[in-house]
């Protein structure tokens, strides 16, 4: 990998000043929309980012970034 950025390398690759338990991110599929979520418990997660190219998906009220989602078992 060749790194080419205006940010200094030491800033990008530094592992200092990291929180003890960095947030755990996970990619999930919700209503056919791929989401990047932050796990906040065994059954809950917080929407962090939408990984979709359809601009209309970003208007969906249930998956706005910051929304808490609850995992439910599929029966």
């Amino acid at each position: 990998m060749t790194f080419w950025s205006i940010l200094p390398e030491e800033l990008v690759f530094s592992t200092n000043n990291l929180p003890d338990s960095p947030p755990l991110y996970e990619e999930i599929q919700c209503n056919n929309i791929k989401l990047l979520v932050e796990k906040i418990g065994p059954t809950q997660c917080k929407v962090s980012r939408l990984l979709t190219t359809n601009p209309q998906d970003y208007l969906h009220p249930d998956i706005q970034p910051g929304k808490i989602l609850t995992y439910k078992p599929i029966l």
């Binding site: 990998m1 060749t2 950025s5 940010l7």
Partner: peptide
């Protein structure tokens, strides 16, 4: 963007 991996870019 601030840059990054040349080959990926």
């Amino acid at each position: 963007t601030v840059g990054g991996d040349v080959e990926a870019g």
